[in-house]
Amino acid sequence: MSSDFIRCASHPDGYAELVIDRPAARNALCRSLTDAMAAHLDRLAADAAVRVVLLRAEGEHFAAGADLKEMLGISAEQARATDFAGCCAPLGTFPKPVVALAQGFALGGGCELVEMCDIVLAAENAVFGHPEVRVGTMPGAGGTQRLPRLLGMAKALDLLLTGRRMDAREAERSGLVSRIVPPDHLLEEGRRLAADMASLSGEVLVLIKQAARASASLPMDEGLRRERAAFHHTLSLPDHEEGMRAFLEKRPPRFNPPLHCKGTLER
């Protein structure tokens, strides 16, 4: 599956950039875009040379939501038959860390993409919200499920039931955003962060993400048991020995197998 509205670039230092590229439509999420994004994610999950994904968008806005013109032509029967979500639902189960860079509007399905990511850097001009209720529908890719877990029920319902928007500062205070960055530095800071994370043990990054994400649905005792088992597993990894030896020898660790990626660009 390919689309002119999304592209993927693999970097030689271990991360990939997944770029939404439909700025003329405020990066509205049409089906060809979300299907192509899902296909890229499937490939990136299997690519051992990619340890982190940086999700960003061209233009002034991250993503203003689903493509409403396209949605008008989709019946309930068609939506059920194709499991239409108005977004890229597979991002929510992607195993590797995902860093999102959000600027301008991140609304509706765009906000759902943000909610699925692990670290969110927001430009000072970023705006988040779920306006679906104001066009007679509701989130379909996790907004009613992830937002309460991230923000708490009161704040989440304040957004979901009214369609109001919140700025980057409120989003950071509420727990949706990890850090706020000046707009001119957003891409530079995001790439620096992705490269730094990709220099760490890829397997350990996945284990940490799995353990932390599982905490949302597990009792504390079960979550602690799974964390302990994952911790014990790390003691069998070559990266564990390399990391400890590097620390004791006062040198940078050399995690992960050598990479031979030259940097590729795909649509």
Rank of each mutant, 00 (worst) to 15 (best):
G59E: 04
A45E: 15
S2T: 14
L160N: 00
A45T: 04
T137H: 06
L91M: 12
E203G: 14
D83H: 14
S236M: 14
P253Q: 01
L68R: 15
A214I: 03
F62Y: 11
N125D: 12
D83Y: 09
G86R: 05
D158S: 15
G202A: 06
H260S: 11
D196F: 08
T93K: 15
G163R: 08
F62R: 00
F247N: 02
A194M: 04
L107P: 08
R245K: 14
T144K: 15
G263C: 09
S75M: 06
L200R: 13
I74R: 11
H260Q: 12
R226V: 02
L29F: 10
L54W: 04
L205V: 01
L161G: 07
A66H: 12
E124F: 00
S10E: 09
L224K: 06
F105N: 09
G175W: 09
V52D: 03
R191N: 11
G140H: 06
R245D: 12
Q210R: 15
C30Q: 04
L121Y: 09
G263D: 04
A48P: 13
R226S: 02
H61W: 06
L33T: 07
E249W: 08
R169I: 14
L200M: 08
E227G: 11
E112P: 09
K250S: 13
R254M: 07
P182F: 10
A46K: 14
D196G: 12
A194Y: 09
D184E: 15
H130C: 13
A48S: 15
E60H: 13
D42I: 01
A106C: 10
P238R: 07
Q78K: 10
R267C: 01
L207I: 05
E17L: 05
T34A: 00
S75H: 07
A216W: 15
T34C: 07
R31Q: 14
D239S: 06
M1Q: 14
A126Q: 03
V135Q: 13
S215N: 09
R56A: 03
S215Q: 09
S215A: 15
V53G: 03
V127S: 10
L151T: 02
S199T: 05
S236W: 08
L237R: 07
S10V: 07
A211S: 14
E70H: 02
C88Y: 03
